[in-house]
Structures are given as C-alpha cells and as structure tokens.
Design a protein around this nucleic acid. Structure first.
Length: 228
DNA sequence: GCGACAG
DNA sequence: ATCTTGTCGC
C-alpha cells in the first residue's frame, strides 16, 4: 500500500516535469495556415469509467469536405496521469497516439477535444498531439480553460476573440444559433482563422462537429462493449 | 486564503 | 469526463 505522502510526492514530481515540457515545447508550435488543401480530417476522443484504470481512445478519419468515413480505430491504455486542469495532454495523448497506430491512412488535419494555444503556457492538448504527429491540429473545447472574451452574437457563425492579456489565442465560436459556443484554438501548423472555418464547416446539424460526435460514440461503444 | 479550473 | 430520469422548450 502506498502512503498518501508518497503518492503526493510522485504526483507533484510528475506535474512539475510536465510543466517544464510544456514550457520547453511551446516555441516549436507553428501557427501559420496549413500547407496544401485539407482533404482528410481526423477526430479524436477519449473515454473512461468512474473507477476504472483504463483509458479508451478513438480516432476516426473523414474525407473533407464531404465527410465520408474513411478509417477508424480505438485503443485501450492504462491511466498514467490524473486529470489536472492545464495538464490534460499528459493524460490523453498516450491513448490517442495508441489509437493512431491502427489508422492506415494519413490525415491533413486532426481535431482534438480540448484546447490548443488557449492554454496557460500556450501548449494545450492540440499543440502536444500536433507536434508529436507533425500534423496540423485544432483544439475544439466545449468550455473555457483560460482567456477573456465577450459573448458572441447568438446566431450561428458568430465569434469573438479569446484573449490571454492582449494576445488572441483562439475564438469563441457559435456553431449553432442559440446554443453555448465552442472554444476553438490552433494546435500546430494551424492559424485561428483557418481553425474557425474548418470547425464551423464541420458543424452541420449540431453544436459539436460531426467527426467529433462520431468518434465520441465510437469510443464509448468500444468501452461499454469491453466493460460488459 | 479564495476562486477558477479543457476532459 | 462519468454517474443518471425526467422534463422543459422549439
């Protein structure tokens, strides 16, 4: 049995190292528009049970902009990092990368459930995965982690800048009229304007982009299938 | 010390 | 995120 004191010791050490990694990698993130056309888009999501020790990740690849499903995969990994605001990528990235090992086709852009640049050290989940995969990424979060903004107009397509001080790090985007906006920020090899356009174009009928909705169902189905 | 806080 | 039923509104 591990003591509470020992547990906290390990836990603190890990978050400190994680913080250093974020600070050391933020300068490697490229915030320019992706090169070449976007013809395939991958979406990722992670799921887990209340007390389980496993994390499930899913990846689904769609043609773009017609959104035909081209490939999909799920993976299960042991949880190695707790959920701590600001350190989500250390918890989810291993699972996401594992799922990507089973994906056989290349994508031009990857959508992640979480922040990209809109992060305390400008290195959210989308930046982390983007650098690792060397692929354009977009952070698409359902709620705010950091940043100031004015509520965008209630009509679909409206947006307002998400700022950390005077720096704009993303956009608060209304993907459907009259519903809560999404928090969109570039991960890697991506800019805010392109990220906004892509996310909006993926929101056909609901607040959440179709590829994210699909992979969310996919990974939950995989988890429940194994749990039962 | 208090409040905030992606999934 | 997950645990959970019904219910208010377009």
């Amino acid at each position: 049995m591990v003591s509470t004191k020992k547990y906290h010791h390990v836990w603190d050490l890990t978050t400190r190292e994680a913080k250093d990694l974020q600070a050391n990698h933020r300068s490697l993130v490229i915030l320019t528009p992706p090169k070449g056309p976007i013809r395939r888009i991958a979406a990722c999501d992670v799921s887990f049970s209340r007390h389980a020790e496993d994390l499930y990740a899913g990846v689904a690849v769609f043609s773009y902009p017609d959104l035909r499903l081209l490939d999909k995969a799920t993976a299960k990994v042991k949880i190695t990092f707790p959920y701590v605001p600001g350190y989500l990528s250390f918890r989810e990235t291993p699972a996401v990368l594992e799922a990507f090992k089973h994906i056989k086709i290349q994508s031009d852009c990857i959508i992640l459930d979480g922040q990209g640049l809109a992060h305390p050290r400008f290195f959210g989940l989308a930046c982390h995965v983007g650098l690792w995969m060397n692929c354009p990424t977009i952070g698409c979060a359902k709620s705010r982690l950091i940043g100031e903004f004015v509520d965008p107009d209630m009509t679909k397509g409206s947006s307002s800048p998400l700022k950390i001080g005077f720096r704009t790090v993303g956009a608060v985007l209304r993907t459907r009229s009259g519903v809560k906006p999404l928090f969109v920020s570039p991960g890697h090899l991506m800019d805010i304007s392109t990220a906004k356009k892509i996310i909006l174009s993926l929101c056909v009928k609901y607040r959440i982009p179709e590829p994210i909705r699909y992979v969310h169902d996919l990974v939950n189905a995989a988890r429940r299938r194994e749990e039962s």
